[in-house]
Amino acid sequence: MRRFTYHEPKSIADAVHLLSAYGEKARLIAGGTDLVVEMKQGKKEPDHVISLRSVPGVNEINFSGGYLRLGAMVTHRAIERSPLIRERFTLLADAVDNLGSVQVRNVATVGGNICNGAPSADTAGPLLALDAVLLVEGPEGERNISLNEFFRGPGKTALAANEVLKQIIIPELPPEACSRYLKHTRRKAMDLPLLGVAVTLIPEAGGEICREARIALTLAAPTPIRAIRAEKHVAGKPFYRAVWEEAGVLALEDSSPRTSFRTTAAYRKKMICALLPRAAAEALERSGRTMKG
């Protein structure tokens, strides 16, 4: 790796100060499982590498007042091991269960996964389907960014060069809600998704009708997206397979998948139609109901 200066600020404010001082020559490092690879490959060559690991509280998971708060440095492993997340924010546990390896999950962070802006980020779809909001700090102070507004292109986010992600804030779901993230891969382990489908369902009382659905897709577009047309279509309708198959077709209108070296756009389109009804059916099964038809 090319030589750089390593910094370990003791507060987010100090990290912001360093980012402001060094500008383009600085990079934040979280777990480092992406950045170190990119530095070894010469794709990124920062003169200054700034770690948040000495900032207190950035690896805490806190659930109170109706919000789950994930510090930016919470690891995928911490999420995997959290009974609270597995029970109440289940699709987020789905996302980390087969992300990378144990070795990667032990150090890779959710904050890093989001801030890299990779179209394939495994936590992006579930966090979109959880209506997550990001708390960031910059020279002017703190601000909130809805995750829906955050992804701007491959590797591009709404984060300014001198802003630091502090926390991912997730509103609690009603107890009747259920969720599922399906990661379509060629291998069971150590693979990036060909397509990711995240679904959160909130049924009406009685459980037969869908009051609200949040549907997020990864690798269906240059950034992770919400499939708004599909969400509108299923809202207020019973949980019928035919309704969700129509939603799959509508989700194509929200999508613009690409052909990459992993697979083709045509295959991704077919899988959007196939996996959206499957994700919804599996979410429903988790709450003891079944998709009809």
């Binding site: 390593y6 170190v36 770690s51 690991r53 144990v102 032990n106």
Partner: peptide, 27 residues
């Protein structure tokens, strides 16, 4: 591999398995 794919650099940090090739020594 040097990129966290093969695991032949695995050591334990605070009892947890990590890829030593991807971790800065400073960590």
């Amino acid at each position: 591999c040097g990129y966290g794919e093969c695991g032949s650099c695995t050591v334990l940090v605070e009892q947890e398995a990590v890829n030593a090739c991807l971790m800065l020594a400073a960590f």
